[in-house]
Design a protein around this nucleic acid. Structure first.
Lengths: 268, 268
DNA sequence: CCAAGTGGTTTCATTATTTGAAACTTGGTT
DNA sequence: AACCAAGTTTCAAATAATGAAACCACTTGG
C-alpha cells in the first residue's frame, strides 16, 4: 500500500527521507553517493525541497538538513492526531496504576512509530520520544498490531522486516513470527520477551476501531529486574481496558466536527 | 526565496499544508472547496500523499489528516537541528536564572516558528509547544530576527505580514515596523510591548552566525503583573550572553562530523 | 420505482514538466 | 599553469501531470 515511486513527489520524498536519515547535515555529494538518482536530478530535487523549506540549506557549510516546515507540519499532525489526543489521559491513568512506562505506537512504513510515552517516575520528555521508530517484528506493540492487521497487509509488512537477531530470544524468521502472531490473536495480547533489548519486557494490546481496523497499540513495559512475564500478564485486563477505552473515545471523536476551526497559515 | 510553485512537488506540499491547516480530519470536498486545483488534480495529489504516508486516510469516515511519516521526519528534523540541540542547556540556564519563560524561535515562511520553550515553573510540555507558529511583526523574537535579516529578505517578509491589530499597541504598518527594526538594530534587542497578547511582554535577542546570518532568536517572556519593560531591560545582558553562547556553540557544532552515524530507516 | 443530485473516481488526448548525458564553472591542489 | 573534485547549467528527448468530460455509487425526493 505505502508503495514507493509515485511520480516526482515520491522521488522528492525519498530524497527527504534520505537526508533525514543521515543523523547530521550532509553535503550534496554525501547524498549523491547513496542515491539512485543521477546528479542533476538529485540536484534539482534538493533545490525544490530547500525552496519549500522542507530542507534547510546552510550556505556557510554547504549542507542540507531537515527543515523548519517539517516541524510545523508535524505539530499539526500531532495536534490533530485523534489517537494521541484521545489516548493521552488513558495513558496517564495506566501509567499511574501500574507504576510502569506506557507506550502508544502506530505502524508506519512497516515499522513501529512511537507516538507517546508516559513514565510514572520521570514525567518529562516528549518530542524526544515521539517520532522514534523501532522494528515491528520484535517489539510488543509491533507484533500486537501485525496480529490484527488484514492478512494481506500483514504479509507485505512481514516481507519488509530485517529479522536482525538483537537478542537470543529474537524471532528471526517469518514463519516464527507468523506462529507468534497466531498466538497473540488467540490470547488477545502480545509480549516482548527481551527480544529487542536485554532485560526489557512488555505486554501490548492493539487498539482496534469498531470495524476492526488497527489504529495503534498500547504497551506496559517493565524490566526483568522489577517484574517478569507472569507479573505483566496480571496487567493484561488493565491494558486491554485501556486500549478499549481509547478505541471507544477515538470512534466518538471523529464526528462532532469541533465547529470549523479557522485555518490560518500565512501570507505565502 | 521560499517561493511557491516549483512544479508538482510544490503543489503536493501546498495541498499538504492545506490539509494540515484545517484543525481536523477533512473530506475530499472540504479540501476541494478552497483549493486552487481542479478536481482530478487534487484527487491525485491527495492519493499520492496518502500513498506516501504524508497524509493518513481514514476509510471509515473518508477523511484525510496529516500522516505518520511527518511525525517521523519531524523527529529527525528536531533531533538534528543543531540550534535546538545546542541551545537546550542555555535555555534551561536562562530560565532558571530569570525565573521566567524562555522561548527559542526561527523564521519560517515569513512567520515565527517556535522551536522550544522552557518554563521554570512548569517543566513539562514540549511537542505541544514546539512547532507552534506566530506572527513575525508583533512578537519579540519575530522583530529581533527581522531586524538582523538581509534587507532584501526582510522586505519580502514584511510584505507578507498581515498587520492585524491584535492589541492597542500592535504595529499596523510596514513603515512603523521598519522604524521599530531600526531601533532594535541600534539597541541590540527587541521588546514585545503587549503587541500580540494583553499583559504579555518580552525581551528578545537574535542568534547570529559568525558571518552574521540570522539563525534564530531567544526571548524572555513576562507579564505586566509580574514585571515591566524596565525590569526586562535589566535582563538584556543575560539574554544577549545566552544568544551569543548559543551562536558560539552552533558554529563549533557543525564540523566535527560526529563520525558518520549509520543511517537506518527501513526495509522499504 | 424512476429521476435528479451529490460526492467521489476514471479516461484519455493534450500539455507541461522532468530527465540526464554532456558540457561548464568554481575553487582548491600539486 | 595544469589538474581535479564538487557543484551547476544546457537542451532535446522522454515522461509524467493535467483537466474537461464522462462515469459510478449512492442518497434524496417526487
Amino acid at each position: 500500500m505505502a508503495g514507493s515511486g509515485d511520480g516526482t513527489v515520491g522521488k522528492a520524498l525519498e530524497v527527504l527521507d534520505q537526508v533525514a536519515s543521515f543523523g547530521r547535515p550532509v553535503r550534496f555529494s554525501d547524498v549523491l553517493a547513496d542515491s539512485a538518482f543521477p546528479k542533476p536530478t538529485l540536484y534539482r530535487l534538493l533545490q525544490t525541497l530547500v525552496s519549500q523549506n522542507m530542507l534547510a540549506f546552510d550556505p556557510d557549510h554547504q549542507t542540507y538538513a531537515p527543515g523548519a516546515r517539517l516541524v510545523r507540519l508535524a505539530h499539526a499532525a500531532w495536534a490533530q492526531s485523534s489517537l494521541v489526543q484521545v489516548a493521552s489521559p488513558h495513558l496517564v491513568g495506566l501509567s499511574a496504576a501500574t507504576h510502569e512506562t506506557v507506550h502508544l505506537a502506530q505502524l508506519d512504513h512497516g515499522q513501529v512509530l512511537y507516538l507517546d510515552k508516559r513514565n510514572a517516575a520521570h514525567p518529562v520528555e516528549m518530542f524526544s520520544q515521539a517520532g522514534k521508530i523501532g522494528p515491528a517484528y520484535c517489539t510488543g506493540v509491533g507484533k500486537a498490531m501485525l496480529a490484527y492487521l488484514d492478512p494481506a497487509q500483514a504479509e507485505v509488512i512481514i516481507a519488509q522486516q530485517s529479522f536482525h537477531k538483537f537478542q537470543p530470544g529474537t524471532l528471526t524468521t517469518a514463519a516464527a513470527l507468523r506462529r507468534e502472531l497466531q498466538a497473540i490473536r488467540i490470547r488477545g495480547y502480545g509480549f516482548d520477551r527481551e527480544e529487542h533489548e536485554a532485560g526489557i519486557i512488555c505486554i501490548a494490546v492493539p487498539i482496534l476501531s469498531p470495524a476492526g481496523r488497527v489504529l495503534g497499540a498500547v504497551s506496559v513495559t517493565s524490566t526483568t529486574a522489577r517484574s517478569d512475564l507472569a507479573g505483566l500478564e496480571h496487567l493484561a485486563p488493565q491494558v486491554r481496558d485501556t486500549a478499549a477505552a481509547i478505541a471507544k473515545d477515538a470512534a466518538r471523536w471523529s464526528f462532532p466536527d469541533h465547529g470549523t476551526q479557522s485555518r490560518q497559515l500565512a501570507g505565502e
